[in-house]
Design a protein around this nucleic acid. Structure first.
Lengths: 229, 229
DNA sequence: ATTTCCTTTTTGGCAAATCAAAATCAGGGA
DNA sequence: TCCCTGATTTTGATTTGCCAAAAAGGAAAT
């Protein structure tokens, strides 16, 4: 069995590989930084993983997952996201406090328990942040999402995904009615000022920096216009 | 934070300390055997725990928990038993398959999650095997239970506790209607033959060896006689 | 009092995962 | 071309748990 450290490495490589704007190989320094270890540690760990056939390692360039490693990574990711949804749906926790919990539980949950949770939740495909939950075989549904700025003037659109798991940000998003499932209009995008103005359905209009707006994605198609009294 | 190894040591010492027929100190060999390590490993680990003030160590005699160690042990035990109940009640798992699951999960569950589970389950005081669940402060209710043999000829009594977590045994107990909460009559105890004959309310009469019967405890007082058609 | 046997402790070593700091490499600019 | 800089890799050490096997204790039996 893979140790929880190994699971963390694989999961993180997967996330970095599939992040937008990522090259074909994940550089050591970046990986080390995200995992909170010094670069040397990452290098030696990656060499071990390479020997185990879980990653392909290109010295002085970076790593990528092997098919075997990807499968394991998806397995971990499935547990992580399923646990997050479980904590919110079944235990009623706030979505801002679930990430760290899931980070620990993802290594302790058996396939048997996962199956029960999956069933209890009705075979869900999305976690509370709008990220896809891989199925037991590692397959994830793909959605066509666009960043907030691309929805300027398109009328009412639905928030689909929030790509930032920090507590403060998630609380901010919640307070302002920007959670996945909520509707909003992108009123204006001022590229020069770097400000995006949105009008959430339930919540007062507000301005976001371009960076911040980039962490929120919406469904591409426009949703039915709501009658504004 | 205590590592999960430390938690296991403390929990096990607690269980052995409070087991019936136990002396004031738990001998190294026994501890090592139950934890699945060689004696030398236990000795060195215990010395570490003693330095941390979690146990009192009497060389060549044994260990016992310090107040600090007992508190931690009860904390772990609470998580273990609560998780077991959770797996049965919420996820609908069979009580014969929950022990090992709980063994891993007990180290990964935060106080916050525990509180949610506790609430969801309605502040339970007993786990699926009839063992008491310590509360958040480490206090457990005490019950007056007696072994099966002491209930000979007392009419209908209620099974209260099963002291064996092995899968086969738990499945046997379930199949024969001997789970906690079920009623039965102890028809006869033959000390010479070493056989206890019981008649479960739902299940056919059966004989148990003395050893086996000792793993089942019942409420001391007799329960209302059920009308046998 | 001695021996024997069983338990416990000690000693020396190993594997996983980490850090600190020195060494190495690779690419861009002078 | 040569050097500088920043990223990467090596090297040597540390910590935590573990095992194997030798050494030491203690209690009961001779």
């Amino acid at each position: 069995m893979a140790t929880s450290t190994v699971e963390d490495y694989l999961k993180q490589i997967f996330l970095m590989e599939t992040a937008e704007g990522a090259g074909p190989l994940v550089p050591m320094g970046q990986l080390a930084q995200i995992l909170g270890v010094v670069p040397g540690t990452a290098t030696s760990m990656i060499k071990t993983l390479a020997e185990a056939g879980l990653v392909k390692y290109e010295p002085r360039t970076g790593v990528c997952l092997s098919p075997k490693g990807r499968k394991l990574a998806l397995h971990v990711l499935r547990r992580h996201r399923m646990v997050e949804l479980f904590l919110v749906k079944v235990l009623g926790m706030d979505w801002s406090e679930i990430h760290d919990e899931a980070e620990r539980l993802e290594h302790a949950i058996s396939d048997r328990v996962m199956e029960r949770i999956d069933e209890l939740l009705g075979r869900p495909t999305l976690d509370p942040h709008g990220d896809p939950i891989p199925d037991a075989e590692g397959k994830m549904g793909r959605r066509e999402l666009v960043p907030l700025v691309s929805a300027e003037g398109k009328g009412w659109v639905e928030v689909a995904r929030v790509k930032d798991q920090t507590e403060v940000f998630l609380r901010f998003v919640d307070r302002n009615g920007l959670k996945p499932g909520r509707r909003l209009q992108v009123v204006a995008v001022d590229a020069v000022a770097g400000v995006v103005t949105v009008e959430p359905e339930d919540g007062s209009p507000l301005s976001l920096g371009l960076e911040t707006a980039g962490r929120i994605e919406v469904e591409q198609r426009t949703v039915g216009v709501v009658d504004e009294g």
